[in-house]
Design a protein around this nucleic acid. Structure first.
Lengths: 203, 203, 203, 203
DNA sequence: CTCTAACCGAGACGGTACGTCTCGTCTTTTG
DNA sequence: CAAAAGACGAGACGTACCGTCTCGGTTAGAG
């Protein structure tokens, strides 16, 4: 995030226009929702926000950076951590929250952001640090608590478990080879918790 | 693939130049490897192949279409199906093959193709049909055989299992939040087969 | 001038669009007349001519170059050479022609072109070679014929005479400290031919 | 000049910073000499003078206004009026003074100021009133004295004579089609005083 | 053994967006 | 209240590719 830190002490000179910042982020989010990321050019954002291009370039290095700030600002609510003691339920709740978000516009846009991240390392980092990691941290917490309680084997690789829970969602979001719904959530959690082997004792 | 089918009967007029076709696909593959997909513009391809832009547009609708033809032509070998009777081994073999491919240039390029597929429906379809589905078919075959043998529970959702095996690979390819190696393969297969629950009997 | 030489042999590739060339030069001349040179930006020309900016940049290096081509095209008629044997009349005729031209829009535009030539060496050269020199050549011819006939002293500096005839016109065009009309012409020619000294014999 | 008149009575509030005014004019003159007028932007002046842009805009309406104040301040010395009774000598002295000034940086800058005056009426007026007219007044004085003494015909147009003396200098300054030196001065004065006609009696 | 349809190279063209520049104005804090 | 600092809206700059459009010149089967 590029937003400057207004750390109490006021700087000299005309202060950054809050109106402009808001207008830019709102315009960006609107454009991404209505026209898609491809049409969300700097010029379109500037025009819609009633702002000069230079003002955008002043605060964000690329349109990817604007986009992700706008995205986080608009879709910031989808985080959940509740420890009910029921691993399956807790993981399902987290997964379901993500899927619900992605069923609206936010899903398509996330796909486009991931797409853009392939050619914009800064955006990739922002996505990892600002979106992915917070969610993984919460899931990791659930898994570690479960291990402490003896519900999950202590020798497993937590990272790969999380990928097996989350990656399918993003993968279907990107490739659209299958849809995603609550049943998928149950299936993903069940598979990875209990395995699909017919005779688990012989594992 | 857009290459027209030369169904025996020869057409009137000057035939399509094989030299041009080859030059275009090679130039495209080279460019994607050396400069990345973003730099693989139609103009760059035309220039490198010593070909006119129109010739490219004549045979492919978008640069995504050229790219995927070039990709499939260069990285076509990574398919495997062996039925050893050992589900874990067979799945691991297939996964490992994919990972090996993706550890080279082919991985980066695949990421860029997936990226481009977000804004190019034709490319998305080509990726699904020409790359994804063949691999899923083979894996589905392994899983169904295992179900038939009673090694895997018959009530599982095969699609979600396959996503839990493959999606993590693509996901790490795209987000680079974790690397992928043989250990990951083992972990993915083990988790989904036997589950991570400490007490599977109570599942 | 940037116009390419169509020396008979046809070049490969799509030929230069005559329509575009015409539209550009007409639009430029119109804009200079109506809005002034300052408003005659490349973008304004492109927009008015219904032409892409690149097409302009392709054939002219700067807007000054377009401007001067457009100017020469529209105001090309003001050249005169008649040898009546009467030096004063012949010089007056040439001067009057220039003044008449400059009394319309062409005068203001010429001022702006001279202005622009101060920061654009190519434009300066084009003005010298394409506008100034042809007129000076004709005037020099008149003067040399007069010398040959014994009407003008052979020891005079022709260049300085020509400047004393023409420079006042351009100077008034630029500074607007005095107007210019037919009386000025007569005065300029008379002064330089016969001198303002009350007793020329004592020169 | 745009500099406001400090008419004796002191104004309320913080007084205008003399330091700033000086710094601005010096910076402007330096920039025009070293980088040319085109590079003498308000921002460049502000930066070099260590002054805010607003401070400049506060006291001068355009950069042309600053430029001309800076120019007059630095090149104010070139005025001369001596009445020796020898018209030719007195005119030559005045012309020579101008030429000497214009052979240095001052010449190039004057060309750029005249250029700028084409699009800045205030600058044009300032040039006319602050530069041109004072010199013309002195030359007119010389000419009128000569008329009074019977050295110059009383029916001549003084304005056109002055243009025939001065305009060639500015014209060569602007168009660079010929150089200017002392010989030119002699030639200009001689031509206009005694005429170039071979037989002046028959005029 | 020409005729002719299709292909191919070169490259001009109308567009769109890029990221940069400078302008002149506006809005703060500091002196 | 002036001055400095610097953010801001406006809009032109010159460049890069896009996808389309002529052109002149092949190439090879069909008549």
């Amino acid at each position: 995030m590029t937003t400057p830190s207004p750390q109490g002490f006021p700087r000299v000179g005309r202060p950054r226009s809050e109106r402009a910042t808001n207008a830019i982020l709102e315009a960006t989010a609107d454009l991404m929702e209505e026209e898609g990321f491809a049409a969300t050019t700097i010029e379109a954002i500037a025009s819609r926000a009633g702002v000069s291009k230079v003002t955008i370039y002043k605060w964000w290095p690329t349109r990817g950076a604007v986009a992700i700030d706008a995205y986080f600002r608009r879709y910031h609510e989808t985080l959940d951590f509740t420890d009910t003691g029921d691993v399956a339920a807790d993981l399902s709740a987290q997964l379901q929250l993500l899927i619900t978000t992605f069923q609206g516009r936010a899903g398509t846009i996330m796909g486009e952001l991931i797409s853009q991240a392939q050619r914009d390392a800064t955006l990739a980092a922002a996505l990892r640090d600002g979106w992915l990691q917070p969610r993984r941290d919460l899931t990791a917490k659930v898994l570690r608590l479960a291990i402490d309680r003896g519900q999950i084997r202590p020798d497993v690789n937590i990272e790969s478990i999380m990928d097996q829970l989350y990656a399918p969602v993003y993968w279907r979001l990107l490739m659209r080879h299958q849809g995603f719904d609550h049943e998928l959530v149950l299936s993903l959690v069940d598979n990875v918790l209990h395995g699909v082997s017919a005779n688990p004792n012989l594992a």
